[in-house]
Structure formats: C-alpha cells, structure tokens
Amino acid sequence: MFMYLIKANHNVKRELDELKTHYEMLQIELQQTQSLKVIESNHVNVTRIPRLYKKERIHNRQKNYQTQQDSIKVFSSCTKNGVIAITIDDGPGVSTSRILDVFKKYNSKATFFFVGVNFEKYGNIIKPAFDEGHLIASHTWSHIDFSESTDDKIKEEIGKNNNGFRNLIRAVPRYIRPPYGTFTHNAGRILKEMGFEAAVRWDYDTRDWDTNQSSNVVSSFQRIFDSKPENSSFLVLMHDMEHSAHALSLIVPKLVEKGYKLVRVDECLGIPESRAY
C-alpha cells in the first residue's frame, strides 16, 4: 500500500509538471503574439521567423544536456567567477555598430553570434568587430533548428556560414550558439567533425525580445544582479535590437563601475583565446 501511494504521488507530480510546462508555453505564446510587431520592426530576415523566442525559452531547459565523447561540449554558464559574458544574437544588423561603440568606450568585450543571411546587407561590420577583439561566433546561416534538421542540412548551414566568415574575416569561428537553444547528439557530432570547440547557451535571458523599451531591459539586469551574491558570473543572452543597444549604453558603465569584467565567452569558460578560430 505504501509503495502504491508513493507511485501515485509520483504520477500526480509528473502530471502537475506537465500542466505547468503547458501553461508556460501558452504564456510564452501570448507574449510572442503581443511582441511580434516589436520583433519584426527591429530585426532583419532571420529574426522574423515565427515562434523564434518562444522556442529559445523552451529549449534552453536542456541545460543539463550530457555531451558524449564524439560531440562538442555544451556550456550554459561561465566557469570563472566575477565575469560577465554578454552575447549578442541574430546580427549583424542595424544596431551592431552602436553596440560596438558601447563596448569600445568602456574597454570591454562581447561575443557576437552571427547569422549568415544578414551578411550581404550588414557583413561589413563583422571585420571591425573582429579587429576590436570581440569573439565572432556562428549562429548558422538561416537560424535552423538542429532538432528538426537532417545531418546534410546542418552541414550545409554550418559550411555556408563558415565560408561567409572566411570571406569576411579570413577566419572560421569555433564557437556556435544552437538556434533556439536546441542541441542534439547528431548536431554535436557534426560540429566536432567540422572543428568546433563548443556550443554555447546562456544562464541569463534579458528578455529584450519581449519588449521594445530599453528601460525594461535595464530593470531586468538590475533584478538579476540584486538577487545574486557578489563575484557571481553571468552568461547573458541579448539580441541585435535598437532598444537593446541603448540598454547596453546604460548597463555597461554600471557593470564596469561595480568592478565586473566584461569578457568574451571563451574567457568566461576558461578556454585559451588561441582556440577561438
């Protein structure tokens, strides 16, 4: 009887967890609908894909994905204390130059996960970012979902993006952020075969995709820092949007003033800079 009650309790808990997940997905769906105009007005090409940010929030729950020996490693947080790695997804775009200006002014570094579909229109900004010492990384050519793509499609997307980088900066990035945060063993195996060092997720989402107000992004930053002990580290997700660029112009000086070091992803992971490309 006792074992039966334990099993019944386990089943109830599982059903409640499933209901909670379903509720969260519905909430995100509502947020996605409300903010779709914001997303489309601030992004170029790839970021107009429907359900983009909803999928990123859902799939980043795979944080504890256990990589196998024939796969690259997947990181969701920094391994060093007291550093902040701000990552910018979905560029290059109209706001990339402004973002670079902010980091240059405060002698700080960031990581840019670029999508190839934007190279033709905004590719000329990638070389300055590279020359200024920021980490240039891949986000695939057209923001495909690894979990819904064949091996050949993954290879095509990565190869095409690699060729774009090779033409623009004469180097091929070895870090990648899986679009939507999804990751599979097959993708990890392919990426390792293609010479990648690591796949990078995040442990702090600014939710800049869910607003068009820079003040909301700044407030989001403030809440997370207020809730964490001093000398914590953060691997931050942001996007190439105008209001995000403005938010960074307010956030970065405050972080520097507090003594935080804003670094590239490879430094926050403790991986030598020589393995970036």
Score class of each variant (00 low, 15 high):
residue 61 R to G: 03
residue 87 T to R: 01
residue 58 I to H: 01
residue 93 G to Q: 02
residue 111 T to M: 01
residue 133 G to W: 05
residue 49 I to R: 03
residue 83 V to Q: 02
residue 101 D to H: 11
residue 51 R to L: 04
residue 50 P to V: 11
residue 114 F to I: 06
residue 67 T to I: 09
residue 127 K to H: 09
residue 93 G to W: 03
residue 78 C to V: 12
residue 137 A to C: 02
residue 130 F to H: 14
residue 98 R to G: 04
residue 103 F to L: 09
residue 98 R to V: 08
residue 116 G to N: 09
residue 50 P to N: 05
residue 46 V to G: 01
residue 50 P to I: 07
residue 118 N to Q: 12
residue 92 P to Y: 02
residue 95 S to L: 04
residue 103 F to D: 06
residue 51 R to W: 02
residue 86 I to F: 00
residue 132 E to D: 15
residue 130 F to G: 10
residue 95 S to G: 13
residue 87 T to N: 02
residue 134 H to L: 00
residue 55 K to F: 02
residue 94 V to G: 10
residue 75 F to D: 00
residue 78 C to F: 10
residue 98 R to T: 09
residue 83 V to W: 01
residue 57 R to S: 06
residue 141 W to S: 03
residue 141 W to Y: 12
residue 114 F to Y: 07
residue 99 I to N: 10
residue 114 F to E: 02
residue 50 P to R: 08
residue 110 A to V: 15
residue 51 R to A: 03
residue 60 N to G: 08
residue 100 L to Q: 13
residue 96 T to F: 11
residue 126 I to G: 01
residue 45 N to C: 02
residue 108 S to G: 14
residue 138 S to Y: 00
residue 85 A to C: 11
residue 67 T to S: 15
residue 115 V to S: 11
residue 71 S to N: 14
residue 131 D to C: 13
residue 73 K to Y: 11
residue 65 Y to A: 12
residue 94 V to H: 07
residue 79 T to Q: 11
residue 133 G to H: 10
residue 61 R to L: 07
residue 57 R to T: 15
residue 50 P to W: 02
residue 119 F to M: 08
residue 65 Y to G: 04
